[in-house]
Design a binder for these strands. Structure first.
Lengths: 201, 201, 201, 201
DNA sequence: CATGAATGAGTCTTCATTCAT
DNA sequence: AATGAATGAAGACTCATTCAT
């Protein structure tokens, strides 16, 4: 009467596929990654892949979902904090640290070529909303507390924090030398400058 | 003895193909763009395409080259100027203005998935070197003149100007509302903040 | 846990493809044979073809290999014999009999146009070496026994036996009437004349 | 009022194309030879080619025709001779000498893959008929004079002389060492053996 | 559930031939 | 007559997905 063989084994395998796919997508991009290469990396047969995911695209969506959940969890974990401006900075640090996994930047790039796809667009929108939704209340609180500048609407400030983060991730695969750990402080400094209320005209 | 081919007509057609390819690449990404769709957009037969470019990839490289040349020309045109810090700001404005063409961001994304290709990597490296080579002397001059901060090496400052520019371009295709003209001033302000020598710790 | 794939079925299909390809190559030549026509003749889908052979050329190489193995086996089967000159004649008869398959001559012709290809050249060299390696010891033994002429080196005699065989195969597709069964005796007679020690100058 | 520019120039160009095509066909085979490569070898533009020949195939037919005419002329030149058996041998020598041009064997091979084409088949038939028509009367005369064997019909003897010639040409591109000049005597010897009336049963 | 053989739609690219100049 | 740009039909090969075992 066993429904599936073993729920734990099922989950483990599903995650193995996700992990393998993340690696392949990051290295080769979505279109140039074959389901066969994912299967090989995951150590499964080609048929098995489609037991876990109905299409190649669906794995990518699962990865995106995973990231969104992670972000959501991170912000939830900051619930009690009373230093909103530092939460923002910490998030930036957190995001920079995640970019230490060399697959992150590659994966982001892989997703880029799929922006036309409605499912991907929706997943990305959910992700952005999650980040935005995590940052916005802190930006508003920090503005209310006078700790960051207020002449720019909170939403727009959030967007610009994300601009810098995006650019930072982009650079990681660029040609010129630019490494996540070495530039992390500069990243934080830059965000601080963007948010800073004291600015000589 | 007809010398055949009007060189002007040849160039025009070549540029028509480049333009069509730029449009398609931007909209669909490199792999999802078929040579057939480029031909259709350019109004030529499938064989004609390969009279002008040996491979699909080669058009993309031509587009990159075109951009590099444009950048190079822009910096050359600023030769005589004596206000290095404003040249930097003007370049940022110039780049933002180019991003008004909605295809720019999409194309950049399309290129992203090809970073593994050595020819593309080389072309991108050339492009980055061009921008870097255009900015660096101005940053150094501005530092020497005490008009921007000097505690960060000139090269690193250049990189960070480019970080913000990259992030800005990325956002243009994002889901949340973010338009080039509306955010141009904020972009300039952000770059000024990054370069500013006076900033209270 | 089904071990899938019946190895026998796999082999059968592989041979069906080889057989279909042999037929098509013989009839149309290599370049004018489409993989589609092979698939159709073999009763398989276009994709299946490439599960068994990576390229169109590789099937042709497999056919050549098959022939080389067959020749090798034939000579092995003659191991115990003590009448070397008759082994030579029997090989000639054997080769003539194989040429009864009307596809043989056409296939040989198809291979001709690929001689420039290194893989084909290597396979043909292997084949020639096999025939040569099969004939040479018999020629030498027959010479030692004084049963065939000795004033011509053994290797050269082998080559001339092959000359006549090649020419024989060529004629089979010629325009003038020339059929394998009808000319078999003349072939044997011709080889005997070439090898004969007694011949008045 | 000039009809064509200059008949001599026209003929020269036509022959230049034939010569270039012979070279390319011999090296690459018919299908793998592009009209472009012929044009390049002939030093003409691609359009010019089709001023002289309506199709790629037609050049090949012209080459075959040229060979047939040459053979025909050779036999005509032997008209007065009274030693028919030596004419046969001389033709064999003549054919062997022509095979000194390394393109001959390659071209023959190239033609092989087109045997299915009716025009090519017809041209080849014409060629064979020419050779056959040149040899047959000499064989008959030699038989009547008792200088060659008579128990085999003249036509069949002709065919077997051609078998050996064909095989000889084939070997020239084979892998094992086999050169036209070195083996010419053996070729003549072989033909003599085939024709010889005196043969111990 | 797990497997991998089978499928065929889809794509880039080649090349003989045409035709305007 | 000579040119070479333009054309589009054709073909090898890839790969996501299905399905029998």
């Amino acid at each position: 009467m066993a429904r599936t063989v073993d729920p734990a084994r099922y989950q483990a395998r599903r995650e193995a596929i996700i992990d393998a796919a993340l690696t392949r997508f990051a290295a080769d991009g979505f279109d140039r990654t074959t389901t066969a290469s994912i299967c090989k990396a995951a150590g499964i047969g080609s048929g098995t892949f489609f037991h876990y995911f109905p299409t190649k695209l669906s794995v990518l969506l699962a990865i995106l979902d995973y990231g969104t959940k992670e972000t959501s969890a991170w912000f939830s974990a900051q619930q009690g904090r009373t230093d909103p401006d530092e939460v923002i900075i910490d998030y930036v640090r957190h995001a920079a640290d995640e970019a230490t996994d060399p697959r992150v930047a590659g994966f982001i790039r892989a997703v880029g070529s799929l922006m036309a796809d409605p499912d991907v667009a929706a997943a990305l929108a959910r992700d952005e909303v999650t980040v935005h939704g995590g940052l916005l209340p802190r930006v508003e609180a920090a503005q209310a507390a006078g700790r960051i500048r207020s002449e720019v609407p909170a939403g727009r400030l959030c967007a610009w924090v994300m601009v810098v983060l995006d650019g930072f991730l982009d650079r990681l695969i660029g040609e010129l030398p630019f490494s996540a750990p070495a530039e992390r402080d500069m990243l934080v400094d830059t965000v601080r400058r963007i948010l800073s209320p004291s600015w000589p005209p």
